[in-house]
Computed example of a mutant assay.
Amino acid sequence: MKDKTADKHETFLALFTENEAAIRAFVRRMVPTRQDTSDVMQGVALVLWRKFDELEDLDGFRKWAFRVARYEALGWLRDTGRDRHVLSVDVIKVVVDESAHNEAKLAAQRDALDGCLEKLPTPHRQLVLAAYAPQADMQQVAKQSGRTVNAFYQWLHRIRLQLVECTRRTLQLEGLS
């Protein structure tokens, strides 16, 4: 039988891992560089873990994590506010509010795109994901597809158009467009 600490740790890790990319994207919109994002995310992760016991509804983890990320980013901006290359806190608050407002729409779009990707034949989906992987070598992906680089780009363009249309239809059917 697992002890409570192990269960808490596993629950936190599952929730954090599931939401980390969205939280990171949210923070990235508020701070100037990727390194700054990493610094803020370390603080966010620590605060989330330390205060995890205070979260009463696990279904509200994402919203709570965004709130923590907002305060951590604003604190980081306040602390680095002497740097003239950093936007003012007032401007950042506008960006944060707009980002929070758009997060539900962006999440729905991501979910719809994921569903559309799943509808692609497995070889096509693998090629699309390979083409968009970090540091993807397009010549290698084109070779893997059995196409020239130009032909692969044309094929990829057609697939992207299909994915856009599928995503639009999915959002319309769900009343989210």
Rank of each mutant, 00 (worst) to 15 (best):
T11V: 10
Q172E: 13
R84P: 02
F12T: 13
W64R: 06
P134Q: 06
R62Q: 11
V149F: 04
R160M: 11
W49C: 03
Q109R: 13
L15R: 00
V47C: 02
G115Y: 06
H9D: 13
D3N: 15
T11H: 04
Q144S: 12
A73V: 05
V31L: 04
L117W: 06
Y153A: 14
R125K: 13
T17Q: 12
D7F: 12
G175S: 09
T170C: 03
L127C: 04
Q42A: 15
V31F: 08
A22W: 00
Y153G: 12
E20M: 10
T170M: 05
E174F: 03
I159W: 01
A73I: 02
L106S: 10
E98T: 15
D137W: 05
T148I: 06
V47I: 04
C116W: 02
R70S: 12
A107Q: 08
T170E: 11
H124D: 12
M30K: 04
R147C: 09
E56P: 02
R29S: 09
H101W: 08
K105L: 07
A21C: 01
G81V: 09
K63I: 15
L113I: 06
M1V: 15
L55A: 08
R70W: 03
G81R: 03
A133V: 04
E56A: 11
D97L: 07
T33I: 08
E118I: 05
R147F: 09
A131P: 06
E10N: 12
R70K: 11
P121W: 00
V94Y: 04
S177Q: 07
Q126A: 12
R67G: 15
N19C: 10
A112Y: 00
L127R: 01
L46E: 14
L161H: 06
R78C: 04
S177P: 03
Q140I: 01
V95C: 07
A151N: 13
E165N: 13
V128N: 01
E98F: 02
Q135V: 06
T5Y: 04
V91N: 01
L161R: 13
A6Q: 14
S177E: 09
V68G: 00
V95Y: 09
E20Q: 13
L46T: 15
Q139M: 08
E103D: 15
G146M: 10
R50P: 04
T5H: 07
Q109E: 13
D90N: 10
V47F: 01
V128A: 02
A151R: 10
F12Y: 11
E20K: 11
D114R: 10
H157Q: 15
P123S: 06
V40D: 06
K4G: 13
A107M: 03
L106C: 04
F152R: 02
L163E: 05
A142V: 05
E103P: 00
V68T: 09
R168I: 14
N19Q: 10
A133D: 11
L77Q: 01
D3S: 11
V94P: 00
I159L: 08
A151I: 08
T122A: 14
Q109K: 09
A45Y: 08
G146H: 08
R34E: 15
N150C: 01
K63F: 11
V40E: 03
W76N: 03
K105G: 05
A133W: 05
T17E: 11
A14C: 09
K2Y: 14
D3K: 12
L113A: 10
L163N: 09
G81A: 04
G60E: 07
T33C: 05
Q144G: 01
Q144Y: 00
R84T: 14
E54R: 06
A65K: 10
